[in-house]
Design a protein around this nucleic acid. Sequence first.
DNA 1: TTGTACGCGTTATCAC
DNA 2: GTGATAACGCGTACAA
Lengths: 325, 325
Amino acid sequence: MKDVAFRAGVALKTVSRVVNGEPGVTPETTKRVLGAIEDLGFRRNESARLLRTGRTATLGFISDNCGHPDHAAVCRGVEEIARDHGFLVFTGSTDNDPSREEVLALSLCSRRVDGLIMAPTSGDHEYLVPEMEAGVAAVFVLRPPELPGVDVVLADERGGAKEAVAHLIAQGHRRIGYLDGDLTGYRSRQLLSGYTEAMSAAGLPVDAAWTTLAPQRLLDSAVTAVFCGSREHTVRVLRALATAQHTPTARGRTRRVAVVGFGDFELADLVSPGVTMVSYDPAEIGHAAGSLLLERVAGEQGPPRRVELPTRLIPRGSAEFPPDD
Amino acid sequence: MKDVAFRAGVALKTVSRVVNGEPGVTPETTKRVLGAIEDLGFRRNESARLLRTGRTATLGFISDNCGHPDHAAVCRGVEEIARDHGFLVFTGSTDNDPSREEVLALSLCSRRVDGLIMAPTSGDHEYLVPEMEAGVAAVFVLRPPELPGVDVVLADERGGAKEAVAHLIAQGHRRIGYLDGDLTGYRSRQLLSGYTEAMSAAGLPVDAAWTTLAPQRLLDSAVTAVFCGSREHTVRVLRALATAQHTPTARGRTRRVAVVGFGDFELADLVSPGVTMVSYDPAEIGHAAGSLLLERVAGEQGPPRRVELPTRLIPRGSAEFPPDD
DNA sequence: TTGTACGCGTTATCAC
DNA sequence: GTGATAACGCGTACAA
C-alpha cells in the first residue's frame, strides 16, 4: 500500500480511501491510484485490515465429519448464507471427540472468527463461555448443546418419527418395531419418543422387544413393520430382509415386513421396492443456522432461539402395504 | 498481552516468550506469567501474530460444491493432513462458475492463505499467476488446470474405464456402450479413451451409437453391456432397465444388460443385483493433495508433480454374467 | 480534497 | 534472563 501510494504520488490514506470506495477523492486521483494498484498487482491484506477493524468476516463450521454427506450438506447451506454476506467459512471435523472439538473451536476463536456453527459432540461446552463473552457468536445445529442460552437449529425428529409410525399404523400395522444403533443419543431419544407417542395415540401397546439395537432380534419377533432411526440401520434391515426372504410365515408364505427409514439417501428409490423415508433438508438447517448466526454477529441481542425444521415423509413402496401375518 | 505483562510484572516480550515456549525464561517468571494468563483468560490473537509473521497456517479448499459427497470426502482428506500440521482450512463452493471461482480464490488469497487446493472449473486460471508469484502455493485436484507448472492430483479414470470394459469383455460381451451426460468434459474424455483403448485392445469395433448421452438410445441399440461415466447416469440406466424389464429379446425372453458404473455410491450393494463399480477413494485424493501442498508451503521447489491415484473395480453382480442375446 | 500521526496485538532486534 | 522499541499492513481521527 505504501508502494502504491509512492507510485501514485499520494499519501497512504488516499490509497486506503480508493480501495474502500470512500468518498472525497478526485476522479483523477482515483484513476492514478487505481493505475498504480494495477501496475503493482496490489491486493489489500485482509489480515491487517481485520486486525484493525476487529472483525474477520469469518465463520467456523464444526461437525463430526465434514465428509459425511449430511454434514457436508449443512456446511454447504452455511456457506451459501456466508457468501451472501461476504463471509468466509472455516471447516473442521471432530470425529465425535469432545477434546478434539474443544481444540478446534478454541483454535478458531483465537483466529477471531466472528461466529461458530457447531454440530456438538456429547461433551459439555463450558469452554465456550469465555469465548462467547469475548464476543464470539455461536449457533448449534442438529443436536442441542449442554450449554444454556445459545441458539439452536434442529430437525423435528420427534415429529418425523410420529409421522412415520402413524403412516405405518394407517396401513393397518399394529406391531411396529423401532431400530437404532444407540438408544441413548439425542436423535435416538427424540425418534423413540415420537414412536411411542404415535403408538399410544393409536392405543397400541409397545412390546419391549420391539425397540432394540439388534435387527435380527426384531425380525424374529412378530413385528410386521419397522421404523429405522438411522441410515445404517435402514440398510441393515433391508439386507437382513433380503437374505431372509425365504423365512416362511405361519401360513407358509414369504413374509413381508414394512420399512420406513429416517434420513434420506441417494438411490433410495432404486432399491425395489423403493425405501419409504422420513427426512429433512440438511441445506435448510445450514441456511437457518447461518442466518441466525449472522444476525447475532450483526448485533442481535434477543433471547436464545430454537428453530425446529420440519421433516417430510416420502412414500416409496417399502411401507405401503398392509401387515402380512 | 499488555494486561498480562502488567499483571505479571514483566515486559511484553517476556509474555511473548512464554506463550511461544521460547527458551531463556526463569521457571519462576514463567509460572507468574502463566498465572496471569490464566487469571485474565488470555488467548493469543492469531490474526496479529500472523500479520507479524506473514504466515497464516491456513489452507483454502475450493470445489464445485462442498456439499457433494465426493468433494466433501476430498475436503475431509485435506482437512486431516492440515490438522496434522496445525493448519486450518477454508472451504468454498463455485457451483462450477468460473467467475465465482475467481472471486473465491482471490478472496482467499487476500486473506493470505498459505495454499490453495482447487477442483477447478473449466475456466482458465491465469488470475492465479500473480498470486502464486506472491507466494501462494496451489494444487489442483480431480481435474487438471489449464495452468502449466502446477501440482495436480487426479484419479486414474482412463485406467479405471479400461479395467471396467475389460471386465465386461472377459464375461464375453462384445457390444458394449459408454454412457455419460457430457462427452466433452475432462473426466468423460478420460473414461471414453479408456473405453476405446480396452475395446481396440480386444479387437472389438465401436459403433457410433454406443457412445452416447441418451440412455434409451443406448438400450435400444444392440449392446449387451453398458459402462456409465457418472453416478447420475448409472442410476438412469438402472432405472430404465428396471422399467423396461419386459422388453423381450429376439428370442422372446426378458433381456438382461450388464452394467458397470463409475463412482461409488452408498447402497450400491443393496440394489439387486448389486451394482458393479469402478471407483476411487476421494479421501486419498485429499490426503495426497494436502501433503503436496504442505510440502510446497514448506518451501519445496521441485518441478510440478502429477499424482494419479488408482481406481479399483468392485464386482457386485450387475456385470458378472455373459451377454444375453 | 488530501495528508499526518497513531493504534490494532503480536513478533523481532537489539541492548541491558 | 529480561526489557524497550520498531515493525507487520491497514483504518481512524483530526489537522491542513
